[in-house]
Nucleic acid binder design. Sequence first.
DNA 1: GGTCTACATTGACGTCTATCGATTCACTCT
DNA 2: AGAGTGAATCGATAGACGTCAATGTAGACC
Lengths: 117, 117
Amino acid sequence: MSVDLTLAPKQKRPPGEPCCEPLVHPSVSPAEARRLGAVAKALADPIRVQLVDVLRRHPGKVCVCELTPLFEVAQPTVSHHLKVLREAGLVGVERKGLWAYYYVNPEATKELQQWLR
Amino acid sequence: MSVDLTLAPKQKRPPGEPCCEPLVHPSVSPAEARRLGAVAKALADPIRVQLVDVLRRHPGKVCVCELTPLFEVAQPTVSHHLKVLREAGLVGVERKGLWAYYYVNPEATKELQQWLR
DNA sequence: GGTCTACATTGACGTCTATCGATTCACTCT
DNA sequence: AGAGTGAATCGATAGACGTCAATGTAGACC
């Protein structure tokens, strides 16, 4: 439960001098951080998490009209969430007649998953 | 690159009948989805991603005054982001004199990491 | 006590987000 | 052509978010 901390207490600096120099830096670049943040943002909603969950286990098998009643929101809202996932690259869509079949792109979450490891 | 889709084309339903019954359901509960979404939301910002990244590799070794100059935002903004991470349970803090030492709670991201696997 | 320092909080601002009703689009079938 | 259906888009609205300047707070040192 508790974390083993080896604190590195600072010295009080002389008045007027600049504050602590940064001694450590992120190992992820700003560009990487932007990508990771973008994927996380796409997943930052319970509905989108459940959408990805369903689509991952049933790729291309589910049309939007089956997804909509799973949530207590209106159809345009589900459509909006799917668009967010689409624009983040997390899912793709294939239209077949009247219906739209979504599927997840496993590559999209890979970087985030590995960074979290 | 392309995904192997086995579509399940729907039949046009008789007029007046309700739309497709949902045949599949999420395997994550709404409560799980809320937790996963909350963790993802905490990571849905490049600065917070980099903060977590630094703190994970230097737990308790870095004070806020070292973190601040890593980003092009003012000190209160860094403080705000740390608060977001704190309230999501991703990081904890230990104060020592004037300084505040943050560290990540590895448990917090575990559920998201495993769900993404 | 008084001053300086590290960090947090407040309040304000502009922007983004989730949601809905209404509408539009694309397709199917008669 | 016309009607009906699945899904996307539009427009509006309420709330959340990221940012900063200003202020507050608590500890350190003289």
